[in-house]
């Protein structure tokens, strides 16, 4: 399982990287944490002529606290998402889900940009970004595109990033006040890709009825699945057991998963309902805002 022959570039500033992508597009692949790309290369399922190692790009390693959003450099590693105080304060959903990614060594190496571009529908960060309506900054020579999550995740293992482009940053809207959220997943083992995952983010009125609801399910479709129908159903409702059951039942109907070795379509569908009801129940109780204290 040795990597296939490749050539190597390690730019120190973003412009060099974008130039290289432009010059070698189609035969060059961005290497960030490498935790998805390198296993594929080891199995010779990926065979890039050139690896563009972006780990030295300081521009991609910043976390910026804007007025309405947090802008996270694409090279920010999962462990930093967990540990960073700005993210903990304004985008606490990310540390919550990031704790479920792989294992310690994977979290220390893997990056948010890498995970999003890899676009695995069972992965935690794409699910969170989908639920949070994050925006992706995608750059190429002389151009920046800003793509909302809905236009970024195209299909199974396929994002909207073109061969000459690079995802450079992710903007996550800050959570509104009185927002609660909860995440849960069922995986074969701790650290494995989830069979199904669910993330609920709910903003409440003063009278505890739901002002805004976001509900996303992972592992049940080609991209992380926003269940808008259930979100609508929840809006203006209160999180009573009946409402939660109703939402779970909508999710159960709405998802159309495929089966594989580890989970049949029916089991996945069942789990989508179960996890929906679990995350909504938890949100109804208090949510996971205090997870890290």
């Amino acid at each position: 399982m040795k990597f296939p022959p490749t050539r190597y570039l390690r730019p120190v500033v973003l412009d060099q990287a974008l130039d290289a992508l432009n010059q070698y597009k189609g035969s060059i692949k961005v290497l960030a944490g490498g935790q998805s790309l390198l296993p594929l290369m080891a199995m010779r399922l990926a065979d890039p002529d050139i690896l563009l190692d972006i780990n030295d790009l300081a521009e991609l390693q910043e976390i910026r606290d804007w007025e309405n959003c947090v802008e996270i450099g694409a090279l920010i590693r999962h462990q930093r998402l967990i540990d960073d105080p700005v993210i903990q304060q304004h985008a606490p959903v990310l540390p919550l889900v990031a704790r479920h990614i792989g294992h310690l060594a994977i979290r220390h190496r893997g990056t948010i940009g890498g995970s999003l571009v890899h676009c695995d529908p069972a992965a935690e960060l794409p699910l969170a970004v989908q639920a949070l309506d994050g925006e992706m900054l995608v750059q190429s020579v002389g151009q920046t595109r800003i793509l909302p999550a809905g236009k970024f995740f195209l299909s199974y293992l396929m994002s909207a990033v073109e061969p000459h482009e690079m995802l450079t940053a992710i903007r996550i809207p800050k959570l509104m006040a009185h927002t609660r959220f909860a995440f849960d997943e069922v995986a074969g083992r701790t650290g494995d890709f989830a069979l199904v995952s669910a993330l609920a983010i709910v903003t409440l009125d003063d009278d505890a009825s739901i002002q805004v609801a976001r509900l996303a399910i992972g592992g049940v479709s080609e991209v992380p699945f926003r269940v808008y129908e259930a979100e609508q159903y929840l809006t203006d409702a209160k999180l009573t057991p009946e409402v939660i059951d109703g939402a779970a039942s909508i999710v159960h109907q709405a998802v159309n998963p495929e089966g594989d070795l580890h989970a049949s379509a029916n089991y996945r569908r069942h789990l989508a309902g179960v996890l929906t009801s679990r995350v909504l129940t938890r949100v109804g109780v208090k949510g996971d805002l205090s997870w890290n204290r």
């Binding site: 074969g188 083992r189 701790t190 650290g191 494995d192 890709f193 070795l261 580890h262």
Partner: peptide, 9 residues
Amino acid sequence: MDYVVPSAP
């Protein structure tokens, strides 16, 4: 990833 053996948890 697919031949799943027990881990510490």
